[in-house]
Amino acid sequence: MKKKTSIVLTGVGGQGVITAANLLGKAAVNAKVGVFVSEIHGMAQRGGAVVCTVRMGDVSSPLLPSGTADVLMSMEPVEALRNICYVNKKTKVITDINPIIPFTVAVGGEQYPKVEEIFKELSAHAELFTVDALKIAKDAGAIITKNTVMLGALAASGVLPFTSDVLLETILEAVPEKYKDVNKKAFDGGMKAIKK
């Protein structure tokens, strides 16, 4: 059987989902693992929902069939729920716990489900890990490292076909000198959040 790893990354435009996907792709190239990353730009940037897929190993397609994600990593609870079609019992769902309420709730009268309900639903269908990435990023020294926290958590989940060091090095290569420390702290914080 061919070895494949499929990761779905989701969140809200501006949260750094595409950046995270790009860094995973770069890490795979650095580790000499085959990789395809898919992202949708365009109108999604104006605060819309964003989905990226990262597929590694012996893969041909940048997209994955439903129900076959190894990990669903979400920067926002309801975005994890929106992409539940990708999970199966063995999928690890790693999500940040801090909701970003879409304007359709304030203006359009739609409902944002209770966060506990979302988590209940996700854990009924997959293995759920919740991370307060916002707090960990704050503690690390910069809120903008939230996606680095999530990548740390992803690395600790053990599904990546390369070591967490490869990913961390790839991230550190990409950040300016003065942000290396914060990003390292954020990454470590994310890793610890998963290793209970």
Partner: peptide, 20 residues
């Protein structure tokens, strides 16, 4: 060979793009 995609009973509110 793939599992049937799960359809959540919980409804996610739409998140279309909007003017910033």
């Amino acid at each position: 060979p793939f599992p049937k995609p799960i359809q959540s009973t919980l409804k996610a509110p739409r998140r279309p793009p909007s003017l910033c």
